[in-house]
Design a protein around this nucleic acid. Sequence first.
DNA 1: GACAATGTTACAGT
DNA 2: CACTGTAACATTGT
Length: 280
Amino acid sequence: MPELPEVETIRLGLQKYIVGKTIEDVEVRLRRIFSGDEKNIIGAKITSIDRFGKGLVINLDNNYSIAAHIKLTGQFVYRDDSTLKLKLSAKVGSQIPNKFTHVTFKLDKGAYLHYNDIRQFGWIKILKTEDLKTIPFFKDLGPEPFGGLTFEIFKNIISKNNTAIKPLIMDQKKIGGIGNIYANDALFDSQIDPRKKAKSLKEKEIKSLYNSILKVLKNGLENGGASELNYVNALGQEGKYQHHFLAYARDGEKCLRCGTIMKKITLGGRGTYFCPNCQK
DNA sequence: GACAATGTTACAGT
DNA sequence: CACTGTAACATTGT
């Protein structure tokens, strides 16, 4: 899923469906991805849902929280009597729970929250709310595009780093929430070569990239996220941003701006897509 | 069989 | 110590 727009879409869904509900039981089928003691959350009521970068936090009324990161293939799927008739995406499967459902939270009024994860890279941690910042991922997370990341801070990050611009904006310690899809699309939108050294960007390019990042993330959010891989929302349904990709996965196709054939290279270990003609 | 997949982190090297 | 690049995590699909 899982970049800022996808995780935010899940957060909005969870906020709508599970806030106010009580956790009656927890079934952990794959212990390796789970830490903390589930006994500490049984009987507690869900009060709010937070998102920090690509991480999710479910807060409870007993000073405990459930922190989670779904990495590449995690899914949180909510089910109750009224959502049961909704058809699940094929990305979830026709049945839930299934062999990829590693954790199930049983809520009151016959509702369930299932955690699925094919590759098992994701994690769920039970801990005191005050201890959330002891999780390294949260502690080291940089400012967010729709949070503390002002243009001045962004400019400062870009101009003092000597790495290629694309891996830099995907570095969660520098900026929270941007992943491979939106990094590719933002660089395409601002016509910047992803290999270009961050330090070498002119003020005008930095400004343009800042605006493009906000623009593509907002577009992703308005389309309910990108279900290119395994991502689904909290009801097990797909997003639509995969139909609006500007550069991601468009290698071999014509550039939307100039018609040149789009190229794919590997940069920082990740697939990188760009127009060799109009991204300078 | 080889390779790549929306992410993060441990580790080796400079 | 700081920075950078690569491998690894586990599984599926092409």
